[in-house]
Computed example of a mutant assay.
Amino acid sequence: MDRFVFITNYSSNFEILYTGFKRDDRGFVCLPNPWDEIARKEDNKVEFYRRLLLYAIPDSGEHFHFIVYGRLLEWISVSLPRVLKDTYKHATVVCYFGDLINKHDMDFEVVKKECDYICTFDKGDAKKYDIAFCQEPYSGFDMSYVESVYDICFIGRAKDRLNKIINLFEYFEKNKLKCDFYIFDVPPDELLYPEKICYNTYLDYKDVIRHIKSSKCVLEVMQGEAVSPSTRFAEALIYNKSLLTDCNSKEIKSVPNVFYFDEIEKIEIDELLREYNYTNNYWIDYFSIEKMIDRIIEIEKNKG
């Protein structure tokens, strides 16, 4: 019997995006972060995490397909896949990158040697590193109604796009849109419009969803080298919101409530504020855990 288990560090958004793994015939393991008190006092952290995994997922003789989130290997050890294969009699280890690979502080060639398969959320990285693309799931949605009180929202880290985010904010303000902007990781000397933009204020992912559902339109601004849409794409489609994005990918262009821009001054405001009440069953299936598992099975067969 095959069993698919997702392993990551704790994060409130993973609890929602990957919640479809929380079934008896699957597995969802959130390991403590290395800097958490329970892990910090352990001298042999790899052995500590091995014991935690074995406690959470006993070796039952099944064929385990461990999907390990890439950031976990950076923060714990790139030897974790080998530990899994030494601990479980039948184990296949897939490393899944939910962020750009060059944003991780570890040797990618070592990761390739340690893991059986590697896949990524980004089609650009898939081509660049000759690895498989796998759509990131979004399986724990909350369809309760929330009234839209904002016209547009942006929630995300500044990364390499702060100037563009601020330029967009200024354009929306000029067009009298009611904005809900949360920008993280911004240096103190770069806080523009602090009376209107929330900076460096942590939001639990359930709060992120509440802000998205309270807006008519969601803004997605791509980081430098990314090609595939981010989680904002899934959120907009699941929650029937408009999405304004500078992601120029094929899957974006065929969706009626998704609007691509490459020049800020050419954004058509009226289009963004329309309400879209379409049947989103297609997208619920598209972002399902079942689709992710099917893709991983396909990757394993093609590489086998």
Rank of each mutant, 00 (worst) to 15 (best):
P34Y: 07
P34W: 06
D36E: 14
E37H: 07
I38R: 13
E42F: 08
E42T: 09
N44G: 07
N44A: 12
K45S: 06
K45F: 08
E47K: 15
F48P: 04
F48R: 09
Y49M: 12
L52D: 01
L53T: 02
L54W: 06
L54C: 07
Y55I: 09
Y55R: 11
A56F: 07
I57D: 01
D59W: 05
F64P: 00
F64V: 02
H65F: 13
H65C: 11
H65E: 09
H65R: 01
I67M: 07
I67H: 02
R71P: 00
E74R: 01
W75S: 11
I76Q: 00
R82C: 06
V83C: 11
L84W: 01
L84S: 02
T87Y: 06
T87C: 11
T87W: 07
T87D: 07
Y88E: 07
K89P: 13
T92P: 04
T92N: 13
T92F: 03
V93R: 07
V93I: 09
V94N: 06
V94L: 03
Y96E: 06
Y96G: 04
D99N: 15
N102Q: 14
K103Q: 13
K103I: 00
D105G: 04
D105I: 08
M106E: 03
D107P: 00
F108P: 00
F108A: 07
E109W: 05
V110T: 14
K113S: 14
C115A: 13
Y117Q: 07
K127F: 03
K128Q: 10
K128G: 00
K128L: 12
Y129N: 03
D130G: 06
D130M: 08
